[in-house]
Simulated assay, not measured.
Amino acid sequence: MASIPNPQGFCHFNSERLVYRAVEDCDSDKEFLQNGILNDPTIQTMSTSRIKRPKSLKTAEDFVKMIQDSLLGVIICLPPPPETSTPVTNGPTPKPKPKPVPIGHMSVFYTLPPGSEQNRCAMLGLSLAEGFRGKGYGGEAINWALDWAFQHAGLHRVSICAFSYNVNALKLYRKLGFVDEGREREAVYHQRSWHDLVILGMLEDEWEVLRGIK
């Protein structure tokens, strides 16, 4: 899990095409999460069982804190665009170096109550902004998070959930190696119909097999 140059002072990690950085309590991250994630109608439909409605800045502020309190909480980014010119010494003030472009968020978080950490179980969740879905970024980010969870956080089990009508998400999770563990029947109300919440999981030894470790 290599790091990349850090000209902006953020802590960066990266996979093949993506950059992962901490969520900051700053206006730019709040604006991205409020407008690019929380108020996206598709994300509200596919990623949360909360009622679909406009989300305020306060919601984004609470969301930042929730991600920061997670075991792992990151903004998923594309690498910075290449610089178009070389700064001139003793010339005009150089333009700020380009920053990674945020395209989503991802968290790994405990679901059991405090004091249950010895069970080493956590859940993974992520969302990608409009225009960045269907490009393989979700699968790449999940694989990176799984490697982090089992290599660095010492987890034994990572779960992930999807609504039964989110066929593309379920197809992806199963392709990545998650195993169906159960479902909460008719737990989600969507477009005047009831749908199941599907629960999938991956164990540490299953991840080892996928990565050719044993």
Rank of each mutant, 00 (worst) to 15 (best):
21 R>F: 05
202 M>V: 02
166 N>V: 06
88 V>E: 15
161 C>F: 06
91 G>T: 14
24 E>K: 12
26 C>P: 04
111 T>M: 07
140 E>W: 10
23 V>T: 12
177 G>A: 11
2 A>M: 14
61 E>S: 05
6 N>G: 11
7 P>M: 08
146 L>A: 02
108 V>Y: 03
178 F>A: 10
60 A>H: 04
99 K>D: 12
121 C>F: 06
96 P>Y: 13
60 A>R: 01
111 T>R: 10
106 M>P: 00
136 G>D: 11
113 P>G: 07
97 K>G: 07
117 E>G: 00
73 G>S: 08
38 L>P: 00
206 E>S: 07
67 I>W: 05
48 T>S: 15
169 A>G: 08
120 R>V: 02
170 L>R: 15
68 Q>Y: 11
127 S>F: 06
180 D>P: 09
91 G>S: 15
202 M>S: 03
166 N>I: 08
127 S>G: 08
102 P>A: 06
150 F>K: 06
173 Y>W: 04
68 Q>C: 13
124 L>N: 00
17 R>K: 15
6 N>H: 15
73 G>C: 08
145 A>Y: 03
141 A>R: 09
43 I>L: 10
122 A>M: 06
59 T>M: 13
36 G>T: 09
32 F>C: 04
69 D>R: 07
202 M>D: 03
25 D>E: 15
96 P>F: 12
198 V>L: 04
23 V>I: 15
32 F>S: 02
74 V>D: 00
189 Y>N: 02
185 R>Y: 12
5 P>S: 12
49 S>V: 01
19 V>T: 14
166 N>A: 12
188 V>H: 00
198 V>P: 00
83 E>L: 11
43 I>R: 11
113 P>C: 08
71 L>W: 06
197 L>Q: 05
80 P>Q: 15
191 Q>F: 00
129 A>D: 05
123 M>N: 10
66 M>Y: 09
30 K>Q: 07
194 W>C: 01
192 R>K: 04
116 S>L: 07
65 K>V: 11
210 L>C: 09
169 A>D: 04
214 K>E: 04
179 V>L: 06
66 M>C: 05
117 E>T: 06
13 F>Q: 15
138 G>F: 12
210 L>E: 13
7 P>S: 07
21 R>K: 14
179 V>W: 01
69 D>Q: 10
87 P>I: 08
156 H>I: 06
106 M>S: 09
206 E>Y: 05
122 A>T: 03
75 I>C: 11
